[in-house]
């Protein structure tokens, strides 16, 4: 299994974290997460792996794409995080075309400790901040968004968006989402935001 050597766990992690923080603070904002050459297994997005490298370590658990064992092994080797079932995982990695049912099983925290909930990283084909063909238009409203923010995502299923809406229907309970695309762009939908899509 590949152990990434191009990744600097001090400085790369810091830069990528700041990118994620910026995206999470400004839902719908599309940021690029860097150009580090890493060799993720299969067609799993390098951007998702970089998000994982920035945030995961031995103290957290994760669930990878439909029990994808190669991704799981890759993450364990490179982050020391521990695989877990989807309902217990702190981080859940799925694909935008997966069935939304996986999302329905994610941990949404408890009222006293709503932060004890999953962060979901979803691989999608493309994320644009201008309208494009064959995309879902996602309209965000809430903290971090001045009035409303429109963002265009290719290859995210209605069932995932529907499931996400359901998981986040009882604020402050819910999950926080990071979308990554093939080009290395990321975009976030925290639970605090209301969204609709066309």
């Amino acid at each position: 299994m590949i152990r990434e050597i191009n990744y600097n766990e001090v400085f790369d992690a810091q830069i990528h974290f700041r990118t994620i923080l910026d995206c999470m603070s400004r839902p719908g904002k599309v940021n690029h997460i860097g150009e580090i050459k890493i060799q993720t297994p299969g067609d799993w997005h390098p951007a998702s792996a970089l998000v994982a490298f920035a945030l995961l370590n031995r103290d957290v658990t994760f669930y990878a794409n439909n029990n994808n064992e190669t991704v799981a092994e890759y993450l364990t080797v490179n982050t020391s995080a521990v695989p877990a079932t989807v309902n217990k995982a702190d981080f859940v990695f799925i694909n935008g075309l997966d069935n939304g049912d996986i999302l329905l099983n994610t941990n949404i925290g408890v009222l006293e400790y709503p932060e004890k909930s999953a962060t979901v990283v979803i691989d999608v084909e493309n994320i644009y901040d201008v309208p494009k063909d064959q995309t879902h238009e996602i309209i965000l409203q809430g903290p971090g968004v001045e009035t409303e923010k429109r963002v265009y995502v290719r290859n995210i299923s209605d069932s995932i968006l529907q499931a996400l809406k359901e998981q986040n229907s009882e604020y402050p309970l819910g999950v926080d989402v990071i979308l990554t695309d093939r080009e290395g762009n990321i975009m976030c939908i925290p639970r605090s935001n209301n969204f609709s899509w066309n």
Partner: peptide, 13 residues
């Protein structure tokens, strides 16, 4: 990393 993860959650809530 722990602080970073928690800062993200803080931003989300």
């Amino acid at each position: 990393k722990e602080i970073r993860r928690k800062l993200l959650k803080a931003v989300c809530i």
